[in-house]
Amino acid sequence: MTEAKYDRLAAVLKKKKNIILQGAPGVGKTFAAKRLAYSVMGEKDDDRIEFVQFHQNYSYEDFMMGYKPVENGFELKYGIFYRFCQKAANHPDKDYFFIIDEINRGNMSKIFGELLMLIEADYRDKKATLAYNGLSFSVPKRLHIIGMMNTADRSLAMIDYALRRRFSFFDMEPGFDSEGFINYQNSFANETFNTLIERIKELNKEIDQDKSLGKGFCIGHSYFCNADDCTEEWMKDVVDFDILPMLSEYWFDENSKLQRWENILHGVFQ
């Protein structure tokens, strides 16, 4: 990510309080979310970061509060977001970050409930009465919510408009041309790796121009990161077990296109 792009992202997060990093698989959304939190804090303090992943069965009771079965009946238990808000409220001079992976995989209205109002930047520190315990509650001003959304998952509905208005959306794209990736690539000094990255960039152009796909389905750079050794076996594994299975989902009804790209990618190693 360029410095200018980071500055803009950090400024939007500080102003809006809630942001969603959206992009294709492998563009580094999770990596960026934690680094963004550290940079705004000015230090690496994991005690001020909470990380959750939404899924279809995730509920308000898990997130905020609800009655859970105990030995002699039911007891009101506080959820992860409620506890984290209390923690942040005890340190109003510090920034806290609540990171939600796969934010569009849960039923957003059901999970957030009356928080839909309280997470808005203008309503931070303003109290509202909670349905479960009748007590007043507010979301601290310096608590930031960072969501992550995979734009290539066609099984998921888009986020509803009520929640969409409360978040800013930041597109993350493959970083093959970024200074960081180029330096990483040059450190290998491997011609096969260079050729493979060129083919992936060509593949991304075709995905971007495909009317049924688009830039939200491009192949991310993180599939090719974090290798200690740039061996041919590792590169083949990435192609065969990460890239090609994804392309078979994208072009499940266009076998000739899938076969052409399978030949192109395997051709890198011949």
Rank of each mutant, 00 (worst) to 15 (best):
F81A: 08
N72M: 09
Y67H: 13
Y96H: 13
E75P: 01
F63P: 07
P92M: 02
G66T: 00
P69T: 10
P92L: 04
E71W: 15
K68W: 11
G106M: 04
I80C: 15
F63A: 08
I80S: 14
E61G: 05
H91W: 05
D95F: 10
P69L: 14
D93S: 03
M108D: 12
Q86H: 09
E102L: 08
M64F: 13
Y67K: 07
M108P: 10
Y67D: 02
R83V: 05
D62G: 05
A89S: 03
G106H: 05
E61I: 08
M64N: 00
Q86W: 03
E61M: 04
K94I: 03
C85L: 00
Q86P: 00
Y82F: 11
G79L: 08
F63H: 09
G73I: 08
M64P: 01
M108Q: 07
Y82M: 11
M64I: 14
F74D: 13
R83K: 15
F97G: 08
I80D: 07
E71T: 12
I100T: 04
D93A: 06
Y78S: 06
R105W: 11
Q86S: 10
I100V: 08
I103V: 12
N107S: 13
E102Q: 12
K68I: 13
I103L: 03
F74L: 14
G73N: 05
D62K: 09
D95A: 14
C85M: 02
F74C: 09
P92W: 00
G79E: 08
I99S: 06
I103S: 02
E61T: 03
D95T: 13
P69Y: 14
A88G: 02
E75F: 00
K77D: 06
Y67Q: 04
N72E: 15
Y96A: 12
F84G: 02
M108N: 07
M108Y: 04
F74P: 00
I80R: 15
E61V: 01
Y96V: 12
F74N: 13
E75K: 10
E71P: 00
N107G: 09
I80W: 06
K77E: 12
P69C: 10
K77L: 13
F84D: 00
E75W: 03
R105T: 15
P92H: 00
A88E: 01
I99L: 14
I103F: 04
R83D: 15
I103P: 06
N90S: 11
